[in-house]
Design a protein around this nucleic acid. Structure first.
Lengths: 228, 228
DNA sequence: GACGGAATCTAACAGCCCTTAGATGGACGC
DNA sequence: GCGTCCATCTAAGGGCTGTTAGATTCCGTC
């Protein structure tokens, strides 16, 4: 907990580098992002990066770490700011909206994380796993509480459900471009509506998952059948 | 419509290269996939690739093209195989299940597409756009029919809804690893259940989207507030 | 205003990987 | 059996990019 008195020059530059790296990694992918691009965006020469970071991997590792930290902080703030009589479901709603906001407009770090976590060297990814697990456990607690409160269905595999939700939300930064008639707020609202209630019209009877069985009983095509 | 008499040796090798490329692009990303890896997986030398493909870009372009073609074919087959009295919603369900299957187990091409389409050079992506638009229009037709039939809510932006669904489904190949107790079929079922009905427990009254408004009225933090 | 460390720049190296050209091998028809 | 075209291999080049070491500039302090 260092005193945030006045940021030293080195700290300022380091911050500019990180911001630039998050932006470049987000738009170019991991292997596609060149250190020369990052340095240029930060307003320094390529070699100067090595005064602040030991290597390219150390830089990306820090970006990934911040990507989760920013998302988690924003979500926790949104959840924590709810009135004390908020239900467990209210908390889940707030978390979904906050996570969507982070992906869409708040943070290059978080969208960079979603974008490149699957491309990064194995050891970098492994070291980032603890952050992911922590964040995942936070969400699991939110969801479990809502299940216990009878507000979220109890026939869901919460891990699978969470990953499906993250997929829908994290993917937004790949296709969403703000323009007239389709704001980030609209996307967040629709995401919340679909994840909570689905696309089907509401029905009166309780909803159960259909007994699992292959669509019309066909087997998936074999490898040799699907070329072309 | 060339007669598929006997595949020539060149065609066989070309197919092996494409299969290998799909697998490598899927697992390594676009920039991370080396031609030497692809060649090795196809059982040939790196230079020999150029007898079959003009360049690395031409190869990835073909993989992307097939990625959509395979998905579309599998989905259309599943939908087309439904009994003639199937409702518009039944068709949407079949499409969701089929799309999930493709991502999870059927095709390296389709998961490679989801994985690398955002990393590929701009002109390759632009040339792939027509395939994407065609496939998107197919889905739009399915969804619109279900909306007209009163089986899917009419308060959704169908483009946004479709992209959220694709996000949830396409992301599965990033995190799903089949193991005991969590089969691809389970994931597909859960995805279908969540996308159709959401995670919230069913309610008796018709569901409406809540009036849009910021969670607890806070504004998103500014850039200077979120460093750390 | 000179000293010294912090911060940045410059220039070059080294490795990787796409690409190419020419050589080599193999299958099939005559 | 021989020639011809198809398919593949081998080896080298050339560009790009991460990394490093030493030179240089900035800036607060005495």
């Amino acid at each position: 907990m260092a005193a945030p008195s006045r940021p030293t020059k080195s700290e300022l530059t380091r911050q500019r580098i990180l911001d630039a790296a998050a932006k470049i990694f987000r738009s170019e992918g991991y292997s596609g992002a060149r250190l020369s691009d990052i340095a240029a965006a930060a307003g320094i020469q390529t070699g100067s990066l090595y005064y602040h970071f030991e290597s390219r991997e150390a830089l990306v590792e820090q970006v990934l770490h911040l990507g989760i930290a920013v998302a988690r902080q924003h979500v926790e703030e949104a959840v924590g700011a709810l009135p004390s009589d908020a239900t467990a479901l209210d908390r889940v709603k707030a978390a979904i909206l906050a996570h969507t906001e982070v992906q869409l407009e708040i943070s290059d770090y978080s969208s960079a994380h979603a974008r490149i976590i699957g491309q990064v060297p194995a050891d970098v990814r492994r070291r980032n796993l603890v952050d992911q697990i922590n964040y995942g456990e936070y969400w699991d607690a939110l969801l479990k509480a809502a299940v216990s409160a009878g507000q979220i269905r109890d026939d869901l595999d919460l891990y699978v459900a969470r990953m499906l939700m993250f997929g829908a939300l994290n993917w937004t930064s790949e296709w969403f471009r703000p323009r007239a008639g389709r704001s980030a707020q609209l996307v967040a609202d629709q995401a919340l509506a679909i994840l909570l209630h689905g696309v089907e019209v509401a029905r009166a009877e309780p909803i159960r998952v259909a007994p699992r069985r292959h669509v019309n009983g066909r087997r998936p095509p074999t490898k040799s059948e699907r070329r072309g």
